[in-house]
């Protein structure tokens, strides 16, 4: 398999990249290449121009802002994996990134690439949904911010114009000591998950849940926030029964079906993965444990 012919560009600034994108409705940005290169090889995409943004230094970096982290679009997944700052501010992301592909792909793969590709079960968009992240995008006309809730326009389609690119993502902090859990079910470690779930949680002095975020991916066309489960649990103690009942509401997600799993099975996995993610988050919020069991087996 060989990529189709295209004209290659390798700008060194965002401004040059945006100029190349402007008015070109059949160009593709080449970030880490871990999705675009296979799509080129299989001729799923036939761009006239490939704009390689790997030489744009200003797009890389992890920055601590007032209320969270701002991570540049071309920051490698490897750099996120090994970042103490990420571990400190967003341990959910660290737990999730260990399940993103493999070492060889994380060495090249980028945050912005994952966000723009927007696979329905990709881990980083799931973390973005869980943390109410903001996606920073730019075009030759200017910049704008998109709330993660508004970012997926459909299956593998971000709500961006053809001349826009992702420049970074801001992940708001949760309070120090919050609980978190990221679990997924995949056929092979590192493959795209069939279904995954991410949970963030804080408990009040009495041990009741005072804040919770629950996201399920790989079921709908994009990550879904499970608002019914969240609402059900506010003010409740995270007992096994309460978390199981809340997880059960995830069965209502409108589910995709494909060669890997039927919609019924994905809905079943949504209940199991969400319960496991909530259980891990609750235990950590209470300060009782650390481990979550990365890849789900059975059930």
């Amino acid at each position: 398999m060989k990529p189709p012919p295209f004209t290659y560009h390798d700008p060194s600034t965002v401004a040059e990249a945006l100029e190349l994108l402007s008015g070109n409705d059949n160009a593709r940005l080449l970030a880490g290449g871990q999705s675009l290169m296979p799509m080129l090889a299989m001729r799923f995409v036939l761009p006239d121009d490939v704009i390689d943004i790997n030489n744009i230094a200003e797009l890389s970096g992890i920055e601590v802002t007032g209320g969270g982290l701002r991570i540049g679009a071309m920051t490698r997944q490897r750099d996120i994996e090994f970042s103490d700052v990420v571990q400190q501010h967003c341990p959910l992301m660290r737990e999730a990134i260990l399940q993103v592909g493999h070492r060889q792909t994380r060495n090249r793969g980028t945050l912005g690439g994952s966000m723009a590709h927007l696979d329905p079960s990709a881990e980083l968009p799931t973390v973005a949904m869980a943390t109410d992240a903001t996606i920073h995008v730019a075009s030759a006309k200017g910049t704008r911010d998109i709330a993660m809730a508004d970012y997926p326009a459909g299956y593998m389609t971000p709500a961006m114009e053809l001349d826009e690119m992702v420049t970074g993502v801001s992940f708001p902090d949760w309070p120090a000591g919050h609980g978190y859990g990221f679990v997924e079910f995949a056929r092979r470690h590192g493959d795209f998950a069939i279904t995954s779930a991410a949970c963030l949680m804080t408990l009040d002095a009495s041990g009741a849940i005072d804040r919770i975020s629950l996201t399920v991916s790989g079921v709908g066309p994009a990550p879904v926030r499970c608002r019914d489960a969240e609402a059900m649990l506010i003010g409740q103690h995270p007992s096994e029964d309460a978390l199981k009942a809340a997880g059960e509401t995830c069965r209502a997600i409108d589910a995709m079906a494909d060669v890997h799993a039927s919609s019924d099975y994905r809905q079943h996995l949504a209940t199991v993965m969400s319960r496991r993610a909530m259980t891990a988050a609750a235990a950590r919020a209470a300060g009782t444990t650390g481990a979550t069991g990365a890849t789900g087996k059975g059930e």
Binding site: M1, Y8, G33, M37, D52, R103, Q104, N107, R108
Partner: peptide, 25 residues
């Protein structure tokens, strides 16, 4: 297309799939 890992090389000491990079990169 980046699944089997047979083409893994070390790029500046880091493993990478050589089928998922362009030579010019």
């Amino acid at each position: 297309h980046g699944v089997c890992g047979a083409c893994t090389i070390l790029l500046d000491g880091q493993s990478a799939r050589s089928c998922l990079m362009l030579a010019v990169q």
